[in-house]
Design a protein around this nucleic acid. Structure first.
Lengths: 345, 345
DNA sequence: CAGCTACACAAAAACGTTTTTGTTCCGTAC
DNA sequence: GTACGGAACAAAAACGTTTTTGTGTAGCTG
């Protein structure tokens, strides 16, 4: 049952039917060259009637532009898991970016990992890349640099201070918002749980936490768990935190760690938010579904996607001098950090 | 500041450096032709050393295979919203499909809408398509058929009974699971709320509901709300349902409708699950975040993605005779349908 | 009326592959 | 000693565009 791949009409078919050369067809459709209005219109109607669409690969081959960009998720790569429960930020971003690229008549390609061989077929032919959460000295970025492929990143690569084509949340400001909120809710001692990926998010939030503690005269209580350890890792660190004494609040960067910490606390008989507050810097399915639901920093995904695509297009056009874009974050207060109104016992 | 787009090495560069013709390079790398082992190995090492990767567009132009497939979300198109809150199923599927295609060395392209002009550039050059939730007589499918582009769909197109390249949940069985569960939890009269999109999901679930009512000797109570009306639409239909008398349970196909229905009930002083049970056939952020959390049918996204990609590859290769794949669904019991254990007042 | 310009279009080159068809060399059989 | 065949490679065509260069005609100038 060999499938008959019937290719669409080519530029030759259109030329023949319109009684002109292929040059004229190309020029007519692309608004170039010197064609009389009558001819141009006739060619256009013939093309439309035949449903002619220029072959993307031939066009791309000719002018080395394929009108598509790539989206690569670095932190997901390190998580080794693309069927994500709890990392839905990434997938929402993909959807928002797809909508944004459509408006600019660009395709969006999901590229899982650029460093793993064999390379996804035409990952290197794409016009540009959005790199989500690059690591320190990220090899994917090194590859893109070497190939001269334009890119922007969500969060900066901490190892490339001179690079300015990135969009990110203002992690320092966000961290302060969270810590101030926890303090206002009555927490005196606030523990911090970060990941081990060496990315700007981990670095900046921790730095902001340390600065805040210094300011507040509090002793920093910093813990690290590998991102991939997920909820279980959170449970372990929860135990470690308790070993040092019950804090007033725990701020975990990832939603899965926060969920694990909350579980550890609750298993040991502490109530949330009665005895200890818990919140996360990154919302996830886990944090939403937990009982009580866990407060989180919220991300305006469509705005982030729009900023990233806009910046990438700017870079590809070489139009503007690049400048980082900082987006504000919003704190989503849920029950886990809400001052108690109804008596729990 | 014109960016210097430095193209990678071409097959000519490799040929020159290895002292052979481009034919020999191509054959060496692709394991074709009649090349001595010594030459083949030498060419390969030269190519590797230069970091040569065959240009995807030239290769695609030559053998009309671009090694990438498209993913198009029909129901999202009708929802007109790609920054989805409450439709995260789609984005998870995209991630899972991306992982699945990588394993097969295929690229995955997100294509928002194939019928809107201007067409995304090389949407028609892709090797195949996964169509998510096609409508009745879906124009996207018609376009793919006309162009001879292979495709598989998630859910069948109800207007194409002969087409067999689809993967879906067993909607009839799932509906019965839900209804039986509601009945077991004590609901006597069960209202049904479906969408207005003319897709198989709506059709099959409603048919199963009607059959179940017939069997149980109950009067069907069917309501419809446009998918795009979301939570507000659910609130309205909730009011309509109450106008006919409080049912024992309401089964809403979409999570956003279910949320709206639950809100309407609660605003009027009815407790969930105390006075009325509510559940949904499609989990969403809304249904999870609602208080109480709303029970839902759960979808094994990675399994669905794997099945879809596998089937599409089969179709593209023309290998196997196509056959529909039916996946089982799982019922996620949450508080909204759980028999009460703690007294609520 | 020669020469120039502008116009409207056509021919051909180029993009980087893969594949089909040639070519050369060498060993072997008749 | 000529014919044959296979091994190892090279040349060239083809994929469908875009863009550069070319060509012929008409209108205008001096």
């Amino acid at each position: 049952m060999a499938r008959e791949l019937q290719h669409g009409a080519t530029i030759w078919d259109v030329a023949r039917k319109a009684g002109v050369s292929i040059t004229t067809v190309s020029h007519s459709l692309n608004g170039k060259g010197n064609i009389s209005d009558a001819t141009r219109e006739r060619v256009r109607s013939v093309a439309a009637e035949m449903g002619y669409v220029a072959d993307a690969m031939a066009r791309g081959l000719r002018n080395s532009r394929m009108n598509a960009i790539g989206l690569v998720f670095r932190s997901l790569d390190s998580l080794g898991n693309y069927g994500p429960n709890g990392v839905d930020v990434f997938m929402k971003l993909a959807g928002a970016a797809a909508a944004e690229t459509l408006n600019r008549n660009l395709g969006l390609m999901l590229v899982p990992d650029l460093t793993r061989a064999p390379l996804p077929p035409f990952s290197l032919s794409l016009d540009g890349y959005i790199v989500f959460a690059p690591h320190l000295d990220d090899p994917v970025i090194a590859l893109l640099e070497k190939r001269g492929i334009p890119y922007v990143s969500w969060d900066r690569d901490p190892g490339r201070p001179g690079f300015r084509n990135w969009v990110a949340h203002d992690d320092a400001a966000s961290t302060l918002i969270v810590l101030d909120h926890l303090a206002a809710a009555g927490a005196v001692s606030i523990a911090y749980v970060g990941g081990t990926d060496r990315n700007a998010w981990n670095f900046d939030c921790e730095a902001a936490y340390v600065a805040w503690c210094l300011e507040a005269g509090a002793e920093p209580r910093i813990h690290h768990v590998p991102e991939r350890d997920g909820v279980e890792g959170g449970q372990e660190v929860g135990a470690r935190i308790l070993a040092d004494g019950l804090p007033g609040a725990v701020f975990c960067l990832t939603g899965r760690h926060a969920t694990g910490v909350a579980q550890a606390m609750q298993e040991r008989g502490f109530s949330i938010p009665g005895d200890v507050l818990v919140c996360t810097g990154s919302d996830s399915e886990h944090s939403r579904q937990h009982q009580p639901p866990i407060s989180a920093l919220d991300v305006d995904i469509p705005a982030a996607a729009a900023a990233l695509v806009q910046q990438l297009v700017d870079v590809m056009d070489g139009a503007k001098e690049p400048a980082p874009v900082l987006l504000p974050a919003r704190f989503l207060e849920r029950e886990s950090t809400r001052p108690q109104t109804t008596p729990s016992r």
